[in-house]
Simulated scan of single mutants.
Amino acid sequence: MEEQPDEKLLVLVNRLKQEKYPDADSLLLAGSVIRGEATSTSDLDIIVLYPELPNAYRDSYYYDNWPVEAFVHDLQTLTYFIDEIDAPTGVPSLATMVDDGKSVPSATELSKSAKVLAQASLRKGPEPWSIQTVNSARYMITDLIEDLKDSRNATESQAIASVLYSTIADFYFRIHGFWSAKGKTIPRRLRKVDPGFAERFEKAFSAVFLKNESQALISLVSDLLAPHGGPLFSGHRLEAPEEWRK
């Protein structure tokens, strides 16, 4: 269900459409302003929908002191980006924005079709990881955890943990068949799909970053990998394609 942003903001976004995208069918206002989480530095994320375009594009600029990130599409380019660009990464960024977006000035047949497309993709979920991908992720996490165990100082531990943060989250999401997330979206998404794991995840990383204590994170990884074969190092082999020659 769409949240209702501040009425003044809707007026501003409608004016933006009229001035910058007068021929567009509609806009979808998404991001933190829709979720009620906007801060003084938040930007406006908008999907601009046209009946037809020569090509999709992304536009960044300021409007009325707001930083704006505009994703400009027609239905065909939107379909391509959702299915061919975002879906293979496991992170449904554009589909989520479209699904969450508030139609401005109002819903149209095109904006409704865009939402149906996004919702179908989100319901379908990501492609399951292959055994090879699972093993590669296990190997990478194992390698990083061994580095963390042997870390010589707090700076090294923080550097290793910063890589583990997204790597562990991605493994958790994908191994459970969920869409993944990146950056600041990770904790919000974890809390939504598994509040208990999210709490343990956050405490483990806080211990590394604030106290230089890594045992909670090492234990978290051990429990996460255990149902999938545990840590992986010995015997892991990754074949390069024959055509990788120069």
Rank of each mutant, 00 (worst) to 15 (best):
M1P: 15
M1L: 09
E3R: 13
L10C: 07
N14S: 12
K17Q: 07
Q18A: 11
Y21T: 12
L27V: 05
L28D: 01
S32A: 08
R35H: 15
G36R: 08
G36S: 03
A38F: 04
T39I: 09
S40K: 14
L44T: 00
L44N: 00
A56R: 15
Y57T: 14
Y57K: 13
R58A: 11
R58H: 14
S60G: 11
Y61E: 14
Y61L: 15
N65P: 03
H73Y: 13
D74N: 03
D83P: 06
A87P: 10
G90H: 02
P92A: 05
P92Y: 00
L94E: 02
V104W: 01
A107N: 14
T108G: 02
L110W: 03
L110N: 11
V116G: 05
V116H: 06
Q119G: 09
S121K: 15
R123C: 09
K124Y: 02
E127H: 02
S130W: 04
Q132E: 13
A137Q: 12
R138C: 07
T142V: 04
L148T: 02
K149V: 02
K149N: 14
S151K: 15
N153D: 15
A159K: 11
I160P: 09
I160S: 12
S162L: 12
S166Q: 10
T167N: 12
A169Y: 09
A169V: 13
D170F: 03
F178E: 12
W179V: 03
I186K: 09
K203N: 07
A207Y: 05
N212D: 10
S214Y: 02
Q215G: 02
A216Y: 02
S219R: 09
V221T: 09
V221L: 02
S222C: 03
S222A: 11
L224P: 04
L224H: 01
P227W: 05
F233N: 10
R237V: 06
L238E: 04
A240V: 07
P241K: 01
E243N: 11
E243W: 08
W244P: 10
